Amino acid sequence: MQTAGFGLVLVAAVLVRTRAEVVDDILGSLARGVSFLELQHAHINLDGAVGFVMLQAELKEAVRTWPHTDPVSWAQRTTANALLKRLDQNLDKAVTALRQNDPKYYREFEPLLTWRFWLTRQARRTSDPSLVYPSSMTSECYDEQLSDKCLTLLLGTWKTNGTPCIVTKPCRDTMTRFGCPHYSLSHQLLYFLIGSMRGCSDLLKGDTRATRTNMTQQNYQEIFCSNMMKANQLIISDGLTEHTADIFTENILICGLAGFWDFYKADWLQHILRMQDEEVGCFGRDMNVVSQIIGDELLEQLQPHRRVKRREKVLPGLYGCSSHMTAVAVGALGGYLNFHLSEQDITKRPLS
């Protein structure tokens, strides 16, 4: 009996150590991501800034509710807290640069640039394979301009002091259309998620379709994430590529925010961690662009009198990095961090 008990203790110790190692991996990756932000805050676009703001919300939640367990866990909390302070400082700089560089876009999406907007913790749920579409379209079924317009109508930023939670028929029809693939699908979910976080309770008001009579906002989120789960499973079975990595990670980020914690799979975490450039700290680095930047720099060195700002035509200052890919990756990793901390201590006792 004592031997069996000792064996259980050993198993428990291995599980705790493994979880601690995973948290270390996540914190290490996030530290490199924040270092990238420190260097490139002046060049991060709005998508990039929003991803880091999502991370900021996740880190604040993690530090606040870090489990009372052991010295290793407490040391990790200290690391996370220091990381959060660095992130706070550099996000302020990035947001200031955004306000100056693109004031119109900044004004329209300003509500998304505060961590409190994203702090709403959704109830835990899982995707449902029975909700997967029998077939999906092969091409995107949304227009980015319409998507942006629909979001500003929700946020109330469509004009100065605009009324929020406005849903036009084109927006409702587009955001509730079934069978959409890829980014159309993730933006449909994002629309409902942002609506929920903005406090919009009547997104479906005015929908007269008989087949949608009893549909709720929660129902749509379940349908969308169930199809995003299927999409990610297909991406993995086909082999993750640089072309599918971005939507794969975006699906994890947004469905995780919506409370679908079955997206936080251990092997999917490893895929995300491997996408990071160890040297620069970003995700989705295009080495073809890096080669072009290096070529431009050599040209400038050989012909100083021809110092034109060629790099701004590529990705200014970003070392060939994808601002969007980096954004969704750090946001998703923040979700993974809270998932693992919650699994470690399901009581989630807030720190006094």
Rank of each mutant, 00 (worst) to 15 (best):
S186P: 04
N219C: 05
C141M: 14
C165D: 00
C225Q: 01
L189T: 03
I223M: 09
K230T: 01
L190K: 13
S237T: 08
M137N: 15
R198E: 11
T157G: 10
Q145P: 08
G195A: 08
T157W: 08
S226K: 08
I166S: 09
P134H: 11
E144G: 10
T152C: 14
K159G: 13
N227E: 10
R172F: 04
W158P: 05
D207G: 10
G162Y: 06
H187L: 09
R198K: 15
L193G: 00
T216H: 07
S139H: 14
T241A: 14
E222P: 04
Y142E: 12
G195Q: 01
M229V: 00
G156N: 11
D143A: 14
C200S: 01
T211E: 12
C200N: 06
I235N: 11
D148C: 03
A210M: 00
Y142P: 03
C150Y: 07
P134A: 12
T241Q: 11
M175D: 00
R177A: 13
W158D: 04
L151I: 12
Q217H: 05
G199F: 00
L146W: 00
I235E: 04
D143T: 01
R172Y: 06
M228V: 08
C180S: 12
K169T: 14
S135N: 10
H182Q: 09
Y220K: 07
G162N: 05
G195I: 03
L146P: 04
T168S: 15
N227Q: 12
F192Q: 12
G162A: 05
Y183C: 08
T168R: 12
T174I: 03
N227R: 12
I235M: 12
N219P: 02
G206H: 07
T157S: 09
S135T: 11
L190Y: 06
